[in-house]
Design a protein around this nucleic acid. Sequence first.
DNA 1: GAGGTGACTGCGA
DNA 2: CTCGCAGCCACCT
Length: 111
Amino acid sequence: MENTSFFQKVYAVVRRIPRGRVSTYGAIAACLGSNGSSRMVGWAMNHSHVADPGIPAHRVVNRNGVLTGKHHFGGSDIMQQLLENEGIEVRHDKVVDFDEVFWDPSAPNPE
DNA sequence: GAGGTGACTGCGA
DNA sequence: CTCGCAGCCACCT
């Protein structure tokens, strides 16, 4: 039997996010077929820290490009630090040029 | 078995 | 333009 829980699928999509790019909950939810259940994606991220390889949840932000869940990363600006480490600029918990670094999980060719 | 929650989104006033 | 509410679906108690 497939242990593919809902968030398991979310992990697959988030892991597909190329380095230096970010995605949104709505885009991932839509990619899963549940267009509108963006909450499930965020909830799945809540368990991301118990995932095997480690999910780059810091690459997942809300529709406004704001690091909504940075507080869940450890209570520090770790999420911002990780994004900057990827080459993404972050100001005031928001992704700079979010439109430029935004990556669509349904994108056949992100480059 | 039923209720409540949640790292969101979109629309209405 | 800004604020508030309702909808969404899966997991937890």
